[in-house]
Simulated scan of single mutants.
Amino acid sequence: MTTRHEAGAAKAVVITGVGIAIPGLAEAADLLGPDAPDGGFDPATGLKGRAMRHKDRASRLALRAVGPALRQAGLLSADGETYIGSGDTTAVVISSNLGNLDSVCDFVETITEHTVTGLSPLGLPHTSSNVIAGWIAIRYGMRGPNLTVCNGATSGADALYWARNLLAVRRAETVVVIGVEPHTEPAARLLEDGSGRGVLDGAAALVLESAERVAERGARPLATLSRTVRAADSATALAQALHEGAPAAGLWLGSAEDAGAASAVDLTARLGHCSGALGVVQAAAGVAHLAAGGPGPVLATSGGGETDDAAAALVLTGAGEAA
């Protein structure tokens, strides 16, 4: 059982922007409400446009979520088209276990039926496991570290861990983290477990920066990413996240029966299987809760099931608050 202590963890890492692209929801705060609002995201219309052409569904969902996050962080031009942060020091971290599986399956089926002579070289980039991160970087000119985390149930929390480390060791000044899973036929088939739960068809995006950087550019921090933990089981992850002397969680996001929180929300009960997107979607909901003045800290847990090889927990606090 291991706990990860990030390099330079004393440096405060804050979240300055949140965006979602989840059917029926308009903003991250809607993740915590009982009913979908009017005018929520509709993939039939929201995944169209010039920037969406010739891209797999997961990449289009990710692009749709990133725009609002960058806008809220104050990192887009007035027309919403141009990234005005430093492209050389902006990293992109994607969390997705099944993102472009449909593209890979299509290529395999084509080879089976027509051999490699039936393939189009223009489609080959879509089979890369890092294609989503690549499209985000190309769209906004982000030339910093660029990677995809594909690590099972804890992938979303793991992506936030790596983002925090990139900031701590100064490999980046800004990190855009996106959790995305598309409801494609291959993904739905793999996630089907007989429970009757649906499968997420959406994405959530977060903009992470150091507190010092945010203060320099006069931006508003929405929440602080105080702690990320990964352990062999849920009980150990919870114990390490809620260390002795830490305040009880004001909001708990997870599927365990008792985390000692004032209130609890299981997002998978509402959204279905979230797979690699879960940790990032949870963080988006937690930021919305804190930004609206809700009590903290926020505790989010993932993994720890019978078929999972690990469990993860993350702690969010209000900007400037201690965990």
Results as ranks from 00 to 15, higher is better:
residue 276 G to W: 00
residue 67 G to Y: 05
residue 55 K to P: 00
residue 249 A to P: 15
residue 21 A to F: 03
residue 277 A to P: 08
residue 172 A to W: 10
residue 322 A to Y: 13
residue 204 A to F: 01
residue 2 T to L: 15
residue 219 A to S: 13
residue 235 A to Y: 06
residue 207 V to Q: 03
residue 116 V to A: 13
residue 89 T to R: 15
residue 80 G to A: 07
residue 259 A to S: 07
residue 194 G to K: 11
residue 274 C to V: 10
residue 59 S to C: 06
residue 315 V to G: 05
residue 116 V to R: 10
residue 69 A to L: 01
residue 86 S to F: 01
residue 52 M to I: 06
residue 264 A to F: 05
residue 161 Y to W: 12
residue 195 S to C: 12
residue 116 V to L: 12
residue 205 A to E: 05
residue 105 C to L: 14
residue 58 A to H: 02
residue 58 A to N: 01
residue 98 L to I: 08
residue 190 L to S: 05
residue 273 H to K: 14
residue 235 A to Q: 12
residue 99 G to D: 03
residue 226 S to A: 15
residue 303 G to D: 02
residue 131 V to H: 01
residue 199 V to K: 04
residue 311 A to I: 00
residue 257 E to N: 12
residue 29 A to P: 10
residue 247 P to S: 09
residue 115 T to A: 14
residue 240 Q to A: 09
residue 24 G to C: 03
residue 279 G to T: 03
residue 300 A to L: 13
residue 21 A to V: 06
residue 302 S to R: 06
residue 64 R to W: 01
residue 301 T to E: 07
residue 204 A to R: 02
residue 120 S to Q: 07
residue 19 G to I: 05
residue 271 L to Y: 08
residue 304 G to C: 03
residue 219 A to L: 06
residue 64 R to E: 13
residue 74 G to T: 04
residue 235 A to S: 12
residue 1 M to Y: 09
residue 191 L to Q: 07
residue 88 D to W: 09
residue 210 S to E: 11
residue 280 V to Q: 05
residue 109 E to V: 10
residue 170 R to W: 11
residue 285 A to G: 14
residue 221 P to V: 09
residue 87 G to Y: 09
residue 115 T to F: 06
residue 278 L to I: 13
residue 104 V to P: 01
residue 183 H to R: 15
residue 103 S to W: 00
residue 225 L to M: 08
residue 152 G to R: 02
residue 260 G to V: 03
residue 263 S to W: 08
residue 196 G to K: 09
residue 179 G to W: 00
residue 239 A to C: 02
residue 87 G to E: 06
residue 194 G to H: 11
residue 153 A to R: 07
residue 314 L to K: 07
residue 246 A to C: 11
residue 271 L to T: 03
residue 38 D to Y: 04
residue 97 N to S: 06
residue 302 S to V: 11
residue 123 G to R: 14
residue 166 L to D: 03
residue 210 S to D: 10
residue 139 R to C: 01
residue 57 R to Y: 00
residue 165 N to K: 13
residue 20 I to R: 08
residue 182 P to Y: 00
residue 63 L to T: 04
residue 255 S to F: 09
residue 118 G to A: 05
residue 286 G to C: 11
residue 132 I to Y: 00
residue 270 R to N: 02
residue 204 A to D: 01
residue 313 A to G: 06
residue 20 I to V: 12
residue 78 A to G: 13
